[in-house]
């Protein structure tokens, strides 16, 4: 099964809820990665409320699509969509990063329903996604593999090892979505270690490459649908995003990579998001 919300307005409202949840969670946790998590709210909403086949009541359902989060530090956004989809009670979101919580600072397979793989060390998710897709292809399974990655982690050699393997096996059942937000810890990717020409890199590795506005939910869904139609190649969707999107004082700023909002900042962010919600509702 899948939770298929088709109304764009409805999806935008969910993304707004996710952003509010993220602000609350990160404020309460007093640490965590804000920019990436918040910037990915639209992509995760599209995936979990339209694209991916999954069943929150039966997380281990054999027919589910496998979702691998490679850049584990943005896990708050994964936790938020999982809770909103019904995997666990929403109250639990407020335990993020706390002692005894199932919401570990970086995800742990087996601790929380809906988490397919542990992550945190960058560059490891894609290999695991490729392994899953190899099995699915060999055994002619219908399920697909989706993997979200960051741009910064493409500086890890392992990513390109896995990209070659996916291409060798012609993994048409694999879709990677890259959070192209241009930031990493020490600054802008193009200053720290340029990734461009990004599209050409993936093309030369034998991938089908798409580019989308990572805040346009409709376009994200369309790109994912297109990836399903490509049989002979794995697909990568380079999603251009704004780090911290929706909360102007966070947007585009590297400093928000790894910090959480103070009480005052969270208060301001909530006001902005509630305003934004009204705007969506009135369209």
């Amino acid at each position: 099964m899948r939770i298929k919300v088709t109304s764009l307005k409805q999806l935008q409202l969910i993304a707004n809820t996710i952003r509010q949840d993220l602000v609350n969670m990160l404020e309460e946790a007093k640490s965590g990665h804000s920019a990436g998590s918040i910037g990915l709210a639209d992509i995760f909403t599209a995936l979990y409320f339209n694209v991916i086949y999954h069943d929150p009541q039966n997380p281990q359902w054999e027919g589910r699509d496998r979702f691998v989060l490679s850049n584990g530090h943005v896990c708050p956004v994964l936790y938020a969509v999982l809770a909103n989809a019904g995997y666990f009670p929403k109250e639990e979101l407020m335990t993020l990063r706390k002692l005894g919580s199932r919401l570990q600072g970086h995800p742990h397979r087996g601790t929380l329903p809906g988490i397919e793989t542990s992550s945190g060390p960058l560059g490891q998710g894609i290999s695991q996604a490729v392994g899953m897709a190899i099995v699915a292809k060999a055994e002619k399974r219908k399920w697909r593999v989706y993997c979200v990655m960051s741009d910064g982690e493409h500086q890890e050699g392992q990513v390109w090892e896995a990209a070659m393997l996916a291409s060798k096996y012609k993994l048409g059942n694999l879709t990677i979505i890259i959070d192209r937000n241009n930031i990493q810890i020490d600054g802008f990717t193009e200053e720290i270690m340029p990734l461009e020409p990004f599209v050409e890199k993936y093309k030369s590795f034998g991938w089908h490459v798409l580019e989308v506005d990572g805040h346009n939910i409709q376009k994200i869904i369309e790109a994912c649908e297109e990836s399903k139609a490509i049989y002979e190649k794995p697909t990568v969707i380079i999603a251009h995003t704004i780090p911290g999107k929706g909360i102007p004082f966070m947007e585009f700023l590297t400093e928000w990579h790894g910090k959480s909002p103070t009480k005052e900042q969270a208060e301001e962010a909530r006001k902005i998001l509630i305003e934004g919600r009204k705007e969506i509702e009135s369209t």
């Binding site: 793989t117 899953m132 392992q158 090892e161 393997l165």
Partner: peptide, 13 residues
């Protein structure tokens, strides 16, 4: 590195 990672993905199935 990819050897170990791909195996982990296969084992996760």
């Amino acid at each position: 590195q990819n050897l170990a990672g791909t195996a982990a993905g296969i084992a996760a199935c």
